[in-house]
Write a protein that binds this DNA or RNA. Structure first.
Length: 105
DNA sequence: AAACTGACTTCTC
DNA sequence: GGAGAAGCCAGTT
């Protein structure tokens, strides 16, 4: 990756940092906030590019159905789930309860 | 510049 | 309700 000043990817990081603790957002949601609804895949790419894990709470981003996907850091999904639980996010089995912990919801 | 990839989403069977 | 296939978007090679 080169030093592209600003880009879609960068904007995603900014949005991810805006997600309040104890809440989670979906890829589609971030994509829409980023200005391109439907670009959920691009969001995933941005997250995997994730330059600063502690600075970019990519673990607060889950699939539209609340399922935990990806997460290359730590032990993967296991760590991601742990982080969310630690922040007070409600879980529905292996999926996040977007009804209770969904951002803007 | 064109083609491929991927941490997604949604429809249909 | 679960599994499979198609579609979309931005980035990377």
């Amino acid at each position: 990756m080169k030093d592209r000043s600003i880009s879609f990817n960068t904007r995603v990081y900014a949005l991810a940092r805006k997600i309040p603790k104890g809440k989670v957002s979906t890829y589609g949601q971030l994509a829409a906030l980023a200005g391109s609804p439907g670009a959920a895949r691009a969001i995933g790419n941005a997250m995997k590019n994730n330059p600063d894990i502690p600075k970019t709470p990519c673990h607060r981003v889950v699939a539209s159905n609340g399922a935990l996907t990806g997460y290359a850091a730590g032990a993967g999904i296991s760590t991601k789930k742990k982080m969310l639980l630690a922040e007070g996010v409600k879980f529905k089995g292996e999926k996040v309860d977007l009804i209770l912990s969904g951002w803007k919801g």
